[in-house]
Amino acid sequence: MLRSRFKMPSHEELVKRMDAIPDHILRECPICDATFFSLRAGSTKTCPNCGYGFRITAKRRAKITFDSFEEIDKQMTIPDRFTDEKYLTKAKKAKKVTGINESVLTGIGTLDKQRVGVGIMDPFFVMGSLGSATGEKITRLFEEATRKKLPVIMFTASGGARMQEGIHSLMQMAKVSGAVAEHSRAGLFYVVVLCDPTTGGVTASFAMDGDVILAEPHALVGFAGRRVIEQTIMQKPPKDFQSAETVMAHGFIDAIVPRLQMKATLSRLISLHTKENVYGR
């Protein structure tokens, strides 16, 4: 039989062969520890075993979620007043990796012919932190959506405030909230999708302001980081204390939606909130 023509490799040999495969071809899921070939994660970069959505760039997310997407404020980037060389070098690298000029991609997208304002934070751009230009882009997105009477879909993924921009980063939380409030007062719909990770000042502002708040499975969602809790009050948090599932059990998330169903779910929610045929009208 065939077997006789091929010598079965020993276990050691197999391990060696695994080592020879470049890292990017085999992936390990940080949630369920399953190891699988990258290709099986597909264009949505989802763990085939547990459904965890790997961190992806904003550009990829736009592509896999919307039928069309037209970027706005594309050139906007870190203001000139920030001159620290280390910071600017970091930002330069981030631009290369992500293909965008700040930690959020904004624009107008379509979902099954419905027009929506779209914001997508990029976890690979200085950890998706909230820079002045990030806040400005999100503020303009809400202003534009208010003018055009469009709903807004915001994908959050952020390490929180951008330390290098100091207090100006903190002020973005108030600025964006002002624009969110205005959009809401106009009776327009705002849906948040919490992605891995959503923390700090982003959680403490527009990430928690949605009319509907969704999350991707196993996304880390929280305010204070694990290390801060451990070091400040010497408490050891349980393993999953900030998983989307835990946060949902405590009442802060409407639904957890796997990435493969995200587009259909968002489309349905937009449609439910923009029906012309409503009671009392």
Partner: peptide
């Protein structure tokens, strides 16, 4: 804001927001 596990469970981020 107070950084402990219970505050996280009770929605510290949401409360500030």
């Amino acid at each position: 804001a107070w950084p402990d596990v219970e505050s996280e469970y009770h929605g510290q981020g949401s409360a500030v927001a």
